[in-house]
Design a protein around this nucleic acid. Structure first.
Lengths: 213, 213
DNA sequence: ACAGTAACCTTCGCTTGCGTAAGTTACGAC
DNA sequence: GTCGTAACTTACGCAAGCGAAGGTTACTGT
């Protein structure tokens, strides 16, 4: 029996940091940044407030660290998923990786869907998920150019793809009796794949300007 | 010159209510529910705090009224958009209606993308956009059954569709140099339409269980 | 045994922001 | 004109929550 477990007492700095990151993730995910109190985090970690300040400098510091780790984590998963295979397989695996992440780490996932406190600092919105969509957009742009499509429209499809996966993921994680991640991934990937595959070269609105007189 | 405009002074109860709803929408959209203060709303409306309480009973009351109106508004727009035309035209018009709403009322749109304060009350999440997706899901389920597809998978596609539109809309409203709403709508609608049109009867994962040894 | 240090706690100041109580000003009716 | 009412104000009570100052406990090496 190690000293840390006797009565869940004193931890090393590193261990405490790790614990606070985990606890913080849960609390931030539950209430959102603003509504989260440092006190609740401290309480759940069975320590007092100042410890949090010693380790992370405050609420925002802890939040930043947690978000950063989550981003690293999910990007890593997706990158691992697309290292090999046919384009379609890679798409499917990326979607599956994303959904698996959402299931495995629902708290982290929930945090990424909200906007960071950075948002209100720098005025504009870099919002994690849109960053991810921009990365996808980079890949799409190249593919579009090669295939003779208008490369300027690539971001639309990139954001559409990320949006559908994120939103389905959110619904899926919060529905009772959810299908398997493989099922959901295959359907979403099929939708995206078929949609992209059969895209007209230059989609235009089907007229219909005759909205009610 | 009416009495209300002389020095922007006393308004009738109805006019004040209307003004507070508008001001509140802007402020809630900017900061989110938690970070919004009643004081800022009162300040921007050039009145003092208690007025807000007299009219709406408090922060939550005002918020609820605003969200309710926005939901009515956007649902109305979409319903108007799908009254006539071929299925594909109706899809396209629905997407266009959604995007136009996002452009016309960016504040209302921003509010709908965040989760209501009701969320923390009843524990679970009904979140406006997912409600909308559920409505779409109702339509899809019927169509799927008719076409011989697995009706149980309809919600996946419904949420995917709503997710892509919402997310693209968010990106689109916040990007400088945005394409026309018609352009974006036609592309998104084409993606969704082609995807659904060429869907395999029963999508399954393309194997590839051989993730790195 | 007995420093020395890392981990941790109790207590406090101070600000912010919700919501209310009591009083004040404009305006229309008669 | 003066009376009543609807619109609005100033002032306040009170709780929550961020962050810091200073003191205390327990483990570690010698």
């Amino acid at each position: 029996m190690t000293k840390e477990e006797r009565h869940a007492g004193r931890l090393t700095a590193a261990a405490r940091r790790a614990q606070l990151i985990e606890v913080g993730r849960a609390v931030f995910a539950k209430h959102g940044y603003e509504a989260t109190t440092v006190e609740e985090i401290a309480e759940r970690a069975r320590i007092s407030k100042p410890i949090v300040y010693e380790h992370f400098g405050g609420k925002e510091g802890l939040y930043a660290v947690i978000v950063d780790r989550e981003v690293e984590h999910i990007v890593g998963r997706i990158v691992d998923a697309v290292i090999a295979g046919s384009p379609r397989e890679r798409l499917e695996q990326a979607v599956l990786a994303f959904l698996s992440y959402a299931k495995d780490r629902p708290d982290g996932f929930a945090m990424l869907l909200r906007d960071a406190p950075l948002t209100k600092r720098r005025g504009e919105m870099p919002a994690v998920m849109h960053d991810l969509a921009d990365r996808v957009g980079g890949v799409f742009t190249e593919q579009f150019r090669k295939a003779g499509y208008d490369a300027k429209t690539a971001p639309i499809y990139a954001h559409a793809l990320v949006g559908m996966v994120a939103f389905v993921g959110q619904w899926w994680t919060e529905s009772r009796k959810p299908p398997s991640p493989e099922t959901v991934a295959s359907h979403v990937a099929a939708l995206a794949w078929m949609g992209l595959r059969h895209l007209p070269r230059r989609p235009t609105l089907l007229a219909r300007k005759d909205r009610r007189p």
